[in-house]
Design a protein around this nucleic acid. Structure first.
Lengths: 190, 190, 190, 190
DNA sequence: AATGAATGAGTATTCATTCAT
DNA sequence: GATGAATGAATACTCATTCAT
């Protein structure tokens, strides 16, 4: 019903506000100010604060998952799959730092239906990666580490980015990507 | 000045509350209730909410840093140093999950003098690890990854723990520790 | 920005509350109740308690100063000037007893920018009166009293009103005005 | 029961604290700190905050009234009586600025029994002065001003001191006293 | 004569949300 | 589509006072 372009603008601004101040500390007024609209006007687009957060997380996860689906179409080598996923994940994060920070840091701020849907997306994402690690384990000699633990190590390396990466001072996405792949693949494969 | 045993109890309870609800969502009343004292009574021990958070972070960092200092005394091999630090870090985190979660997740909630002191402790910690990675790089053949980036990968793997590790369902600290060391050392060393 | 009529009503009620209970003892809830609105509603009109006090003082001083400017336009005899100022001052005070009490009794409750602006208005007022006393001294034979001290005597007589004057039991503004003028002028002039 | 010397010290410090911050804004902790004793220790000397204020006011009024009684003994000329009272009042105020400010500015902060007793002292003081003005009126030609109004003018001039008088920058007590007497007597007498 | 520890009641302020227009 | 005005509920913090020691 509501203009989707305007809504995307609001979502972008909201992500910046939430990333900078934190979801709890940011007020709905801060978001309205950043989106250059009145407080009450926001409620035309969103039913409440949680819905904005949900929209940010939902959009980010969906975009990531859709991208992976495209990238992996026709790829059968599990190592190549992992390679593509790591590249896309890190490249997306670095191109969308505020959304990424919100997605990673503001988990557990949702409740009810929003929480369930967001958690389901998260689980799908983890399952996707873990499935590929299982394929790797089935086709290659790997260290004695469960795919569950291994996937958390991989996500740890990638998601920790939000605490230190600065586009001005730090290396290119490709360099970061290469480092993750080097450490994880050399470390996990025997 | 005030009874340090009582203060340690309060700190413990506060860490649990902050870990469960998040620093912002947890009210000072929640903390008082958990510590089984009146709201106003808390203010006899702490000047404000931030000071409680600072005390948790400060105590955790200090304990970790002191432990490392003891463990590394007399050790000269950088690989052995890293081994000991990873073991101690993960073992501490798993034995103090609430404090660890607060330390890792509630950075940036401090301000002023508290922020400065906490940031300094954090920097010392990062410098300690990076220094050892530099020693590794100077004495071993390593992949082409800067010690800065490498240290963030290592911290990512270790600190991400707070998002997934459950003492009831997940492996022993030693198993987690071994996984981190396997992936990081095999991955970083050539 | 917000409806100025409503704001004037709130200011009036707030002055009554502050006059009766004292600024510190009056809670913002008391003011809201007197203004027949919710506590939070008050914050739509005022940023805080101090701003309400400032608004009362600022409005009162401005009204007084503007009135004096009008009354003195075209008057050149300093005695006549003084006569008009005393009349207007006392008449305003008696017609606005709560505002007057607040203005006189709750000085020093403001801080920061509010304090500076209110202090400046106060200084302008004192300077205005002292300037006229200097004109009197230059054109008439007066007792050996500095214009500074003399102005404080005059203000003392006039402002002390708030501690004793009751519109029900005490004399007409004109009678009070006459008393002040008789004592001060007969006393100061030789 | 309690050491009266220590109590006098506390009263002095409390007067300074109340004069500087205002009775409401000053906490009992501030008073304890100024008196260099513990918070709870104060309660050995005083039953509560109001009692401290009452003690300050009671002591000041009693001292003033006793002084007047001594000074007026044997004096029969009402003008001379007034002269002595004005001198003593102003001299006392300037020698005890904090107590004076508290006495003048923090009226109405007492309640119950304290209020009654303090109000009675205040009334006695006003009656004393008004009585003398009546004697003046009975023996001299005066302006057409009621003794009630005249006494308030006199008190206004004298008590207003607390808002402007600074012992470092302003004139000697005797000069101020002379100004009050000149204005009031020349103004009131015909 | 003095204090460390503790508390119930209250205070200014913020905030997500609503709704008539 | 959009907003000015308003509010109920919550929040961090303060304070006078108490009491066992």
């Amino acid at each position: 019903m509501s203009n989707p372009g305007r809504k995307a603008e609001i979502r972008k601004k909201a992500a910046q506000v939430f990333a900078e101040k934190g979801f709890d500390r940011a007020s709905i007024r801060d978001v309205a100010k950043a989106a250059e609209m009145s407080l009450a006007g926001l409620y035309y687009y969103y039913r409440g604060k949680e819905e904005i957060l949900f929209d940010i997380e939902h959009t980010a996860f969906s975009t990531l998952l859709e991208g992976h689906a495209e990238n992996l179409a026709g790829v059968s080598d599990p190592i190549e799959k992992l390679d593509k996923i790591i590249d896309a994940h890190i490249s997306f994060f670095i191109r969308n730092l505020p959304e990424m920070k919100v997605m990673v840091h503001e988990t557990n701020q949702l409740s009810g239906q929003y929480l369930e849907e967001a958690a389901e997306l998260r689980r799908r994402y983890v399952r996707l990666v873990r499935g590929i690690l299982e394929e790797v384990q089935a086709t290659q000699k790997t260290e004695d580490i469960s795919t569950g633990t291994a996937s958390f190590m991989l996500f740890g390396m990638m998601n920790w980015l939000y605490t230190w990466y600065s586009p001005d001072h730090d290396a290119d996405p490709k360099v970061v990507s290469a480092a993750v792949k080097t450490i994880f693949l050399h470390g996990f494969l025997k």
